[in-house]
Amino acid sequence: MAARPDNEPFLSARGVARRYGSHEALAPTDLDVRAGETLALVGPNGAGKSTLLAILAGALEPTAGRVERASAAPRVGWVPQRPAQYGRLTARENLELFARLEGVQDVPGTVERLLALVDLVGPNRPAASLSTGNQQRLNIALSLLADPEVLLLDEPTAALDPGQRRRLWSLVDVVRERGGAVVFATQNLDEVEHHADAVAVLQAGRLVFLGPFAEYERSPAAEIFA
């Protein structure tokens, strides 16, 4: 893991906002992603959770504000809500392609390790023909190619069976225990309760609460999600 000055956030959102024409998907928002932290993004549908995650991941440009990265730029893995992979390539070919694009040294070894890690069924079938759950496993495996220090997950468990959910959270724990950071968007209060250190609540594109889980439980923002 790259050396960083003490307590320097991996990622800092500074007034990031996103508009689609006249619609404000995300109002100016400030947020830090720090080492060893698991932050849950909660809020109703259309609250701006996916937009904020995509901006943090660098996949979407904010219309205002900026995302600052730590001086030793962290490796970031991103699991978008909808699987992002080439449907006509097999799962294995998708992993090989993105591994090469990421500059992974041992491409075959890394691909085999990740296929085993997510226990993907049918790695040699075109990705489009995989079940929704297996597409999500591939989606997660792709985010792990760069051995990320920051893992950004957008409702990652929505299509997973209970066994796969447990496997995913153990992966998240590994990233955090190695000094990394995890930000996940969810609609599942149990996941927040069991896996999050901190909670950010978004409502209609605005960040209405940001703090430790214990504070969240006592705050009026918890009512939004209740």
């Binding site: 991941a57 992002a84 080439y86 792709l142």
Partner: peptide
Amino acid sequence: DENVLGRLTRGLV
């Protein structure tokens, strides 16, 4: 359509 643009343009391409 395949939703890969975001993944690609995060510094890969």
